[in-house]
């Protein structure tokens, strides 16, 4: 086999089974860590950017991420069936406990310059 080209975005993306399975490619482990770190507002904004309706989807999503979750493949079975992480309902936790996120939202674009600045700062550095 050819050596793997790990610079191709798809290669490591596929390893993140939940994110790969999500049609909007929500960075799931990133927001779950933010919840665990006690930062639900940031977890909410990671979701908001990707899937726009975290509170709605945290209750109603068809959850393509969960059948894909690695946990369901590798979990040690201590008398129970291996089950995925409850990704969808953790999304709801971020929405339920985020507090006021209005200051984290992009400003209404009075001028397109402010909007572009938000958009640019919200993007990660491009390779």
């Amino acid at each position: 086999m050819q050596s793997t080209d790990i610079r191709q975005p798809d290669y490591f993306h596929k390893v993140v089974d939940c994110q790969w399975a999500c049609p909007a490619h929500t960075p799931v482990p990133e927001y779950i860590r933010l919840i665990a770190a006690g930062r639900p507002a940031d977890a909410y904004m990671v979701n908001w950017k990707s899937n726009v309706f975290p509170g709605v989807l945290g209750r109603t999503c068809d959850r393509p991420c969960e059948p894909a979750c690695r946990r369901g493949r590798v979990e040690e079975t201590a008398g129970h069936t291996p089950e995925p992480v409850a990704i969808c309902r953790l999304k709801r936790v971020a929405a339920d406990t985020k507090g006021d996120v209005s200051t984290l939202m992009p400003p209404p674009p009075k001028s397109s310059a402010t909007a572009s600045a938000w958009s640019a700062s919200a993007r990660v550095r491009r390779r």
Binding site: I6, F12, V15, D17, V28, P29
Partner: peptide, 16 residues
């Protein structure tokens, strides 16, 4: 929520 979040395996932390 904390217990469930702990179950995540951090699959985005890659072995490079």
């Amino acid at each position: 929520a904390m217990k469930e979040a702990e179950r995540c395996l951090n699959c985005d932390v890659q072995t490079v």
